[in-house]
Design a protein around this nucleic acid. Structure first.
Lengths: 184, 184, 184, 184
DNA sequence: AATGAATGAGAATTCATTCAT
DNA sequence: TATGAATGAATTCTCATTCAT
């Protein structure tokens, strides 16, 4: 039964999103997943091992929900861009609290700590930017597409950072509107 | 002579920039500042007390170097925008390593941990955005100025985040170029 | 098996009796109970937590040995008084060293430090005095019983204090004789 | 000028009475006496040195106010006993807070810690009991005088202990009344 | 598979005392 | 005389990991 393992990963994913990797203590995880130490070390060899599984799970989810379902769908490019912006805003809206972007958070916290984390997070950002570049080629032409894909992702990540710090969703909404106004 | 206290603050500022607040252990600080435990607690009442001093020092530096010297100077608005972008890129260029934005890092790490840190960091972002809004009023008109000021700050912060994760300065350069292309 | 926890409590009880709460360092406890730091914090959340357990254990023992077994037995009142005095003297005699009264010591050390300790110690003194009051009602009549119960407890506590300071059991013996002479 | 030294001793005496010797930190003393570290170590070689001076000052005061002025005066014996009891009650009444007996506190805290403290405190209790014995010889006859002097001192010390723990002066008043009723 | 007791290195902090000026 | 900067051993507590059952 893998579902126990996945249960632990999901419980930890929330904790890490809310508090960060270092601040999420093993005891928090055991409590949240309602398991004992022995069970934890049966499924995972270390806290880091679990951390990596959490990132993998996040990566998989985003690849499906953002990259595949939105950016690589066969809708018109402007629709894709629109959907991506809606998805970003509604993701944070639905959580109800402003913990920031799971990837952005980990990117800043783990980048220089741990090469494995950095590489995995990197790969997702890379894919996101590349897929967005493809979308933008239709809208702004091929030459500027990469630069502007980077700019849009940066704008969203920075907007989520500001949203978290101000504890105010409206900043992210403004950012989304601003992007929309520029490209659509 | 206050310089000993300032010496400790500066040494710690670098450590926190590079590793984050939590990961910067007291022992790291003592080593970096070349002082003993007792001396540390002679100057600061706790690690947090020092952390706040570090943020205060960063705030002061940025208010002088960014807000006052650039955004509130009496040069033309487009020059101010240009200078700000140059300053941002050259700041990270000069450090030689990609630790990210001192404020952005702390914003993400401390936002939900500690209200005092969040408030101080908030105040700086607020000032930055307001000052930039004033600059943009000349360029894009008053109506959109605030939204676009937010967008620019977000873009820079997000760009620095990507830069840190990719360990590649060119992303930040691209972002700066992109902003320049849009407004100048 | 709770006996490990009780083992730690008992070992600590002796230390606290001999040296006081503050002077009993964690390292003393670990050595006396022959356990490691981690094990200690597995059973107790803090030194204070253990301290409270120690007081609770003392309270329980005294309630059984002094209050229930002696003062609330169904023997004649003068026998009860006699037994209490015997018990007090032989308690200190059997230990062989003059560390004072576990409750009196803590009462003086912790009274103004910590409200929880004070309250618990208070409760025991209160019960002791009330039970003794009941015994005395038969001997001196109801009117003076409370005052004289207080006087007897005070005399014993003060006698133990002097005994400790003079490192001489005979003072406590004298006090017991003096009480006996007055009431029996 | 010795008055500075005496000023430090008096300020510390209050602190030790209220908090005990160990809990009175050097920093508390410096603050209370409004002096710097250098000045402290000019007048005293260590904290213990000061502690001994404090005990010496207490001993001197009690020898004057209790032993000489009351117990060795040329008034009738029953007056002396009465005055001693009044003095004891009014001493704690005048302070307004219930910190216990300065000697009783130190007796319990320091007895087994430090032989010098114990000896000095011992000497005072010894003198007190001897002087009271002389007074009692007139009242109860020579045979029982020593035992009853011990009993009275014990009763007062125990009463003050209970008073401190219950934070209630009336217990000490009861004890005084009880002693008066027995001898006067 | 599972429990939770046990480990121990390392964390922040306290504090009497010494030393340079 | 006096200041307060500097020292460092000792203190309580944290926490990921291992081990016996």
């Amino acid at each position: 039964m893998t579902s126990k393992k996945e249960h632990i990963i999901s419980a930890t994913a929330e904790l890490i999103h809310a508090k960060g990797y270092e601040s999420t203590k093993l005891s928090d995880i055991l409590k949240a997943a309602d398991i004992g130490k022995g069970q934890f070390y049966h499924y995972f060899s270390s806290k880091k091992d679990l951390g990596i599984s959490v990132v993998d799970q996040y990566v998989q989810t985003w690849e499906q929900n953002l990259i595949e379902a939105i950016l690589q769908s066969d809708k018109p490019s402007t629709d894709k861009l629109n959907e991506m912006l809606d998805w970003a805003v509604s993701y944070h809206e639905s959580i109800g609290e402003f913990h920031g972007c799971p990837f952005g958070n980990l990117a800043l916290e783990m980048s220089e700590h741990d090469e494995i984390f950095r590489t995995k997070i990197n790969a997702l950002f890379e894919k996101w930017i590349r897929s967005l570049e493809n979308v933008l080629e239709d809208i702004v032409g091929g030459e500027k597409a990469l630069m502007q894909a980077q700019a849009i992702v940066a704008q969203l990540e920075g907007g989520i950072l500001l949203m978290k710090n101000f504890q105010d969703l409206s900043i992210l909404r403004n950012i989304a509107e601003n992007i929309r106004a520029q490209y659509i």
